[in-house]
C-alpha cells in the first residue's frame, strides 16, 4: 500500500537527477569564475558516450564510466579554448554546443549504420537499498533508484562541504571572485579552473548517461532537450550553493513529474505546455529571485 504522493515524488527524484548532477557541476565551475555554457553539450556527449560504451561492453556500469569520461574530456576541450586560448566563455560555450549537437548526430548515425540500424544498451537497473527502502514514504522516494541517483545524493553535500568548509574550496572560490587577487596569493587559477571544468564535465556526463541508459536505453539526437540550460538557471536560483541548487532541481523534477500526473488524471492540456513549463518556470523564478542572488564577481570575466 503506497502513500498518495509516493509515486510522483519518486518520479520527481528520478527526473531531477540528470539536471541536478549537471547543476551541481556548474555550481562548482561557476564558483571558480567560469561560465560553462557548454553544459548542454557535455550532457549530450555523456548520453552518447554511455550508450556506445554500454553497447560495446555489454555492461551498463562501463557505459556510465564512458559517459563520465566523454563529458569530462568535452569540458576539458572547453578549458583549452578559454584558459589556454583565452577565448570568451560565451563564444566558446556556444561553439562547444554546436559541436556537440553536430558531432553526436554524426557519430550516432555512423554507429547505427555499423550496427545495422539498432544500438540498444543494457539499461541501468534500479537498486533497492536494504533497510532504508523500508522507511515509509522516504524509502520509496529516495532509495529505489539506480546508482547514479545515489551518487547524486552523496555529491550534493560533498560539493557543499568542499566549496564552503575546506581551505581548498576557499581557494577555488577565490579564483572565482578575483582571479588576479587569487593569483597574487599564489593560487594557480588556471589549474583550479581546469580541474573544476573536468569535474563539472564528469557530473554533466553522468547526468547525460542517466538520461540515455537509465531512461530510454538508447540515444536520440538532441535528447538532452535543453536540460543543460535549465541547470544553468538552477545554479542562479540556488544562489551558487550546492545544497540549494540540488533542492531547486528537486522542485523542477516535481514540475516535470506533474505532467504525468495531469495526464493520468485525464486533464486535457497540450503536451507542448508541459514541455515549455520548466523553461517558463525557470524564467519566472529568475525574474523573481535573481536580484537577491550574488554570483562570483569574476564569473565569465576570463583570467582578469
Amino acid at each position: 500500500m503506497s502513500l498518495p504522493l509516493e509515486q510522483p515524488a519518486h518520479l520527481a527524484v528520478a527526473l531531477a537527477t540528470p539536471i541536478a548532477l549537471a547543476a551541481v557541476g556548474e555550481t562548482i565551475v561557476e564558483s571558480t569564475g567560469v561560465l560553462f555554457l557548454g553544459l548542454e553539450g557535455a550532457m549530450l556527449v555523456g548520453a552518447l558516450g554511455a550508450v556506445l560504451g554500454a553497447h560495446a561492453s555489454g555492461s551498463a556500469a562501463v557505459g556510465v564510466f564512458c559517459g563520465i569520461a566523454a563529458g569530462s574530456i568535452f569540458a576539458l576541450l572547453f578549458a583549452f579554448l578559454t584558459l589556454k586560448l583565452r577565448a570568451d566563455d560565451v563564444i566558446a560555450g556556444t561553439a562547444m554546443n554546436l559541436l556537440a549537437a553536430g558531432g553526436t548526430a554524426v557519430a550516432w548515425r555512423a554507429a547505427l549504420s555499423r550496427a545495422g540500424g539498432d544500438v540498444r544498451a543494457p539499461g541501468l537497473e534500479p537498486l533497492t537499498v536494504p533497510l532504508l527502502s523500508e522507511i515509509p514514504f522516504l524509502g520509496t522516494v529516495l532509495f529505489q533508484h539506480h546508482a547514479i541517483t545515489y551518487a547524486l545524493i552523496l555529491v550534493v553535500p560533498a560539493a557543499g562541504i568542499f566549496l564552503f568548509r575546506t581551505s581548498a574550496g576557499l581557494r577555488w572560490r577565490a579564483a572565482g571572485e578575483s582571479p588576479l587577487a587569487a593569483a597574487s596569493l599564489g593560487i594557480a587559477t588556471i589549474s583550479v579552473r581546469a580541474r573544476a571544468l573536468g569535474i563539472c564535465g564528469a557530473l554533466a556526463g553522468a547526468g547525460g548517461a542517466c538520461l540515455s541508459i537509465a531512461d530510454t536505453r538508447t540515444f536520440v539526437e538532441g535528447m538532452t532537450a535543453g536540460r543543460g540550460f535549465l541547470a544553468l538557471a538552477l545554479v542562479i536560483f540556488g544562489n551558487h550553493r550546492p545544497g540549494w541548487v540540488g533542492s531547486a532541481a528537486l522542485l523542477f523534477g516535481g514540475a516535470l513529474a506533474a505532467q504525468y500526473g495531469f495526464a493520468a488524471a485525464g486533464w486535457n492540456v497540450a503536451p507542448e505546455a508541459f514541455r515549455a513549463l520548466p523553461y517558463v518556470l525557470s524564467l519566472a523564478v529568475l525574474a523573481l529571485f535573481v536580484g537577491k542572488r550574488r554570483a562570483p564577481s569574476g564569473l565569465g570575466q576570463g583570467l582578469g
Partner: peptide
C-alpha cells in the same frame, strides 16, 4: 530584473 540575457534568451 537583472536576469542575464545569455540565459533568458536560451530559455
Amino acid at each position: 530584473r537583472s536576469v542575464p540575457e545569455v540565459l533568458s534568451t536560451i530559455l
